[in-house]
Structures are given as C-alpha cells and as structure tokens.
Amino acid sequence: MSYLLHRIGWSPQVPLHRAVERDEGVIEQWIVEQWPAIEGRRSTWGLAVLGR
C-alpha cells in the first residue's frame, strides 16, 4: 500500500512533538541575539579551510 501511495505523491507525515516546557519567547530571543553570531562564524571558517 505504501508503494502505491508514494507513486501518486503521498508521503507519511509525522507531526512534530514538542516539549510542554518549551518557551517560545526564550527561543525567539535566542534566535535574534545568538544565531547571527553563530551563523556569521561559519562562513569565515569555510574560507579558512579553503585557504582563502
């Protein structure tokens, strides 16, 4: 059955399970404050590995 459903474009989808204690406000704050610093470091590290 899964083979036939896959052939017509269907796929099994599993809902996300999130912790009850999850604090969306803290997560959003971390994304705004911390993520740009982490994301910025990655590109310079890649250039160092390539010898540029």
Score class of each variant (00 low, 15 high):
residue 1 M to F: 06
residue 1 M to Q: 11
residue 1 M to L: 12
residue 1 M to E: 10
residue 1 M to T: 10
residue 2 S to N: 13
residue 2 S to Q: 13
residue 4 L to V: 07
residue 4 L to Q: 05
residue 4 L to R: 09
residue 4 L to I: 08
residue 4 L to K: 09
residue 4 L to C: 06
residue 5 L to S: 06
residue 6 H to M: 13
residue 6 H to G: 09
residue 6 H to C: 06
residue 6 H to N: 15
residue 7 R to C: 12
residue 7 R to A: 14
residue 7 R to W: 13
residue 7 R to Y: 09
residue 8 I to M: 05
residue 8 I to L: 04
residue 8 I to N: 00
residue 9 G to T: 10
residue 9 G to C: 07
residue 9 G to I: 09
residue 10 W to T: 03
residue 11 S to R: 15
residue 11 S to V: 10
residue 12 P to Q: 13
residue 12 P to M: 08
residue 14 V to F: 09
residue 14 V to A: 06
residue 15 P to K: 00
residue 15 P to Q: 01
residue 15 P to R: 02
residue 16 L to D: 09
residue 16 L to Y: 07
residue 17 H to K: 02
residue 17 H to S: 00
residue 17 H to E: 00
residue 17 H to R: 01
residue 17 H to W: 01
residue 17 H to N: 02
residue 18 R to G: 01
residue 19 A to E: 05
residue 19 A to N: 06
residue 19 A to P: 02
residue 19 A to V: 03
residue 20 V to P: 01
residue 20 V to I: 10
residue 21 E to F: 04
residue 21 E to D: 12
residue 21 E to S: 13
residue 22 R to Y: 11
residue 22 R to G: 04
residue 23 D to I: 00
residue 24 E to P: 01
residue 24 E to K: 00
residue 24 E to V: 06
residue 25 G to T: 09
residue 26 V to W: 01
residue 26 V to M: 01
residue 26 V to I: 11
residue 27 I to H: 06
residue 27 I to K: 02
residue 27 I to L: 14
residue 27 I to Q: 12
residue 27 I to W: 10
residue 28 E to T: 14
residue 28 E to P: 02
residue 28 E to Y: 04
residue 28 E to R: 14
residue 29 Q to R: 12
residue 29 Q to Y: 05
residue 29 Q to I: 03
residue 29 Q to W: 11
residue 29 Q to D: 08
residue 29 Q to M: 07
residue 30 W to S: 12
residue 30 W to H: 14
residue 30 W to E: 06
residue 31 I to S: 11
residue 31 I to A: 15
residue 31 I to V: 15
residue 31 I to C: 10
residue 32 V to S: 13
residue 32 V to P: 01
residue 33 E to Y: 03
residue 33 E to D: 14
residue 33 E to Q: 05
residue 34 Q to L: 15
residue 34 Q to R: 15
residue 34 Q to S: 15
residue 35 W to Q: 08
residue 35 W to K: 09
residue 35 W to M: 10
residue 36 P to A: 03
residue 36 P to N: 03
residue 37 A to G: 05
residue 37 A to T: 05
residue 37 A to H: 07
residue 37 A to I: 05
residue 38 I to C: 02
residue 38 I to Q: 04
residue 38 I to H: 00
residue 38 I to N: 01
residue 39 E to A: 10
residue 39 E to T: 06
residue 39 E to Q: 06
residue 39 E to D: 08
residue 39 E to I: 03
residue 40 G to M: 11
residue 40 G to D: 14
residue 41 R to Q: 13
residue 41 R to S: 13
residue 42 R to H: 07
residue 43 S to P: 00
residue 43 S to Q: 13
residue 43 S to H: 09
residue 43 S to T: 14
residue 43 S to Y: 07
residue 43 S to E: 10
residue 44 T to E: 15
residue 44 T to R: 14
residue 44 T to G: 12
residue 45 W to Q: 12
residue 45 W to K: 10
residue 45 W to V: 15
residue 46 G to M: 08
residue 46 G to H: 11
residue 47 L to P: 00
residue 47 L to K: 14
residue 47 L to W: 06
residue 48 A to N: 13
residue 49 V to Y: 04
residue 49 V to I: 11
residue 49 V to T: 02
residue 49 V to L: 14
residue 49 V to A: 09
residue 49 V to R: 02
residue 50 L to A: 15
residue 50 L to I: 06
residue 50 L to K: 12
residue 50 L to S: 13
residue 50 L to Y: 05
residue 50 L to N: 08
residue 50 L to M: 07
residue 51 G to D: 00
residue 52 R to P: 06
residue 52 R to V: 15
residue 52 R to E: 13
residue 52 R to C: 10
residue 52 R to L: 14
